[in-house]
């Protein structure tokens, strides 16, 4: 089989070269950002010495820290509900072949993946205003309205991740459990849930990062006293470069990278272990 890895240095292939350039394009700007977060100068682009003072200033910035707390709470609440709804929606799409409105439902799940944020944001705001007008709720826009908006677009991503796992899972395990007398709910909790658990974690993390990052939708549905982290970052970035934002960006990039690499290491180890066990089982059929 003609598998040519990008590391065959003898003759670098065109796709291999493009991959290298692509990584450079993706990572160079972030590395520049990180480097300048340690610049002592207030003018971000003028290097005058190594310093960690901007991290101190960032932690002392009360408005920024309040927004961080708000955004983290929001992301936690969003990710949790998005995974619950995403699991239900994924079960519908993969396990129920026919139910009334299946086509419509499929569209409702995929459309938020691509819908421009300005449209989603405006439409949800108009809904909240109309609801407040007719039933008096929500009286104030803030945490709850942003939460609802975030769950709505994040559950689509969670659904895609979870249904991919549900589709590749071996359904004969579920059938076996039901043959042995378990009902659907018992089967779900004893068999299905443990098997799709990695996808639930992946979907949860994805929804968490999407919620933490959203500027546009939150700006539409937020009230006057609810400011999320992206909103505060946006208003300071609009005025130009800010060393505190560089420090914040560095913390974010390092955290995401660390969590991803640890997660990758765990999954990779489990995969290898499972493959070894399968090979061993095939070699010695007892």
């Amino acid at each position: 089989m003609a598998v040519r890895s990008m590391f065959s240095f003898s003759r670098p292939s065109f796709p291999g070269v493009m991959l290298g350039l692509g990584y450079f394009f993706l990572y160079a700007p972030m590395l520049v950002l990180i480097a300048y977060s340690f610049n002592e100068n207030k003018r971000v682009n003028v290097w005058s010495g190594f310093s960690t003072k901007w991290y101190g200033e960032l932690l002392a910035n009360d408005a920024m820290m309040a927004a961080v707390a708000m955004s983290l709470k929001l992301a936690l609440a969003t990710a949790t509900l998005a995974v619950v709804f995403g699991t239900l929606a994924a079960l519908m799409l993969t396990r129920l072949r026919r139910f009334p409105g299946r086509t419509l439902f499929g569209g409702m799940v995929t459309a938020p993946l691509v819908m421009p944020e300005v449209i989603t944001g405006l439409s949800l705001l108009l809904l909240f205003v109309a609801l407040a007008d007719t039933i008096g709720w929500p009286a104030n826009r803030g945490f709850v309205t942003i939460w609802i908006a975030h769950v709505t677009f994040c559950m689509a991503y969670a659904t895609v991740v979870i249904s991919a796992r549900l589709r590749e899972m071996d359904t004969s395990l579920e059938e076996a459990a039901m043959d042995l007398g378990a009902n659907r709910i018992q089967t779900f909790f004893a068999i299905t849930l443990p098997i799709i658990a990695p996808a639930l974690v992946a979907g949860w993390l994805l929804a968490f990062t999407l919620s933490l990052d959203d500027l546009v939708i939150a700006s539409f549905v937020a009230g006057p006293d609810s400011t999320t982290l992206p909103m505060i970052v946006f208003s300071s970035v609009r005025l130009g470069l800010s060393p505190e934002v560089n420090a914040l960006a560095t913390i974010l990039i390092v955290t995401v990278t660390a969590v991803s690499l640890v997660g990758f290491w765990f999954m990779d180890r489990n995969d290898r272990k499972r493959q070894r066990e399968m090979q061993a089982a095939l070699a010695h059929p007892d």
Binding site: P29, M30, L33, V237, V256, T257
Partner: peptide
């Protein structure tokens, strides 16, 4: 898997921050 992760990873950080990085460049 690792190379795929390295492609997706930037999209898990913040879009706003990544656009901001280009302002500086």
């Amino acid at each position: 898997n690792l190379c795929l992760l390295l492609v997706v990873l930037p999209s898990w950080t913040s879009l706003l921050i990544r656009v901001y990085a280009w302002m500086g460049i």
